[in-house]
Design a binder for these strands. Sequence first.
DNA 1: GCTCTGATTTTTACATATAAAAAACCGTTT
DNA 2: AAACGGTTTTTTATATGTAAAAATCAGAGC
Lengths: 300, 300
Amino acid sequence: MKSSSVFKRAHNRCLNKLAGTEPGALLPAESKLALDLGVSRTTVRAVLSSLTSTGIICRDGSGRRLARRPLAADYFPEAQTESTGAAVERRFMEWILQGDFRPGKLINCAELARQFSTSTTAIREHLAHFNHFGLLERRPNSAWMFKGITADFATEIYEIREMFELRSAHRFAELAPDAAAWSELDIIEREHRQLLANIDERYRDFSRLDERLHRLIHDASQNSFVVNFYDVISMIFHYHYQWNKADEKERNFVALHEHLAYIAALRSRDLRTIDAKCRAHLKTARKTLLQSIDLRLNPD
Amino acid sequence: MKSSSVFKRAHNRCLNKLAGTEPGALLPAESKLALDLGVSRTTVRAVLSSLTSTGIICRDGSGRRLARRPLAADYFPEAQTESTGAAVERRFMEWILQGDFRPGKLINCAELARQFSTSTTAIREHLAHFNHFGLLERRPNSAWMFKGITADFATEIYEIREMFELRSAHRFAELAPDAAAWSELDIIEREHRQLLANIDERYRDFSRLDERLHRLIHDASQNSFVVNFYDVISMIFHYHYQWNKADEKERNFVALHEHLAYIAALRSRDLRTIDAKCRAHLKTARKTLLQSIDLRLNPD
DNA sequence: GCTCTGATTTTTACATATAAAAAACCGTTT
DNA sequence: AAACGGTTTTTTATATGTAAAAATCAGAGC
């Protein structure tokens, strides 16, 4: 059966909205809330009905009013707001990064389903995702083969990444001066400087900023294959950031400066400079990833 | 329940092998046959047991002998050898190419399952494949959106294809002179010339040759992302070949000559010439695809 | 030892079943 | 008539069930 993660997520998001509302105030219409929370009116009604029974809101004719401010205890635990699919993908990545799986290892979904205590249907459907990422290879009527993450895999990914990012950076430089991307670049640059000013406490915030910058650049390619490919990079990086904590502050410090040089190059619109700064940064990023992989496969 | 397409395919392939065997001859061991037919020994035993009961083979101690030559009536119909998944993918492509689906059209899998008379599970699992190809967009808890095949989509694909194929062609030129790919290229070239000699009758065989040449070149990239991307190209082309029959002979004639120039460029190992010939051919191929798309979206 | 076949166990592919969520439908009210 | 809330219908996500196919086990013969 389906877990009610959509309901629970909407419920928590609704509480967040209500936290900024004065008690006694009238709530928006159901359809407005549905649009706002990104779910169907059916789910909104389920949430409102739940909030009524816990006494957070009360009916007033055909409308609803906030009865009291929501408390921390009114929220569903964060873990219950994750959909089964998202949980499978997260757990799978953690599983292959933490367990020691050599490339070539066979993975059967019956066993995985038992280990993750879900159904084989959910496993099958979501492992297909990693098949597309190149992490798994599906062999019909048989077990899946775990293929990476090896140094070769990283090299292949980076070969594509460099092609795509250079192309995207060129496109970025060609954007009209009034394009929204330029002001987003300004904001990102400012956040880089703020992060550098507090590097000692905030160095862990780098990865989110890294994602934002590179995604902005890739978006300029206007090519869905390029944009989708960044999802692969992003996923691989996301999980490896969690693994390799060695010299994290120093690495992020260097990367922040490389980003600033890259941003300046984009602003100059000089393709040669852009290529140079982009390549320099990607080279460092690849080195970091290869280091993480080496650390994981050959822990000292 | 699972269709026995694996069994039926193995059964037909086994009959093909037996057609070249003298009656009375001893069959290979079960495990040898399994390896040969690419299925498990369990399936081989099921096939052999079936062939025994139809009197095509007979037991001889612990071995088996061919009793009579197989007839056309002994084969399972071709349609039954297609797995459910493959059938769903093929039928879906035919459905979107033949029906008039404008980009943005919503597709729900419940309806598709009814139309294709399979289960929603099979539909869901295989539509995910087209999600990865960029033909569909999955919207959680809701219907799928059909995105292409539009002119924009073709342009995006060709942007990537050009990047990947130029890179692969360079790698191809750098292969050692004794690499197997060079002799495969010789064979492909010879087949091009043979096809050109009989262009009037055999022009339809071009698409298979096209696939072989480009796949050979992409393989030289040694990059699984590049190789996998060619699957997308291949699929799009495969279905559009079936659609656009206008000037087919002339188009294939031109393409064959472009291929020969491209092959000669690869042999010269001169990167400039390779780039020129590769670009020229891809430009024509893109034009053909765009024409097919236009023909489909705006039939005269 | 290795290779073969026969029998048993496990896994995969897919159909079916069902709660969660979306969508559609339908009077009311403004 | 557009917006709203109540109700009903349909669809999605996923758990469960099962035939097909793979994998494993076990004994026989060389």
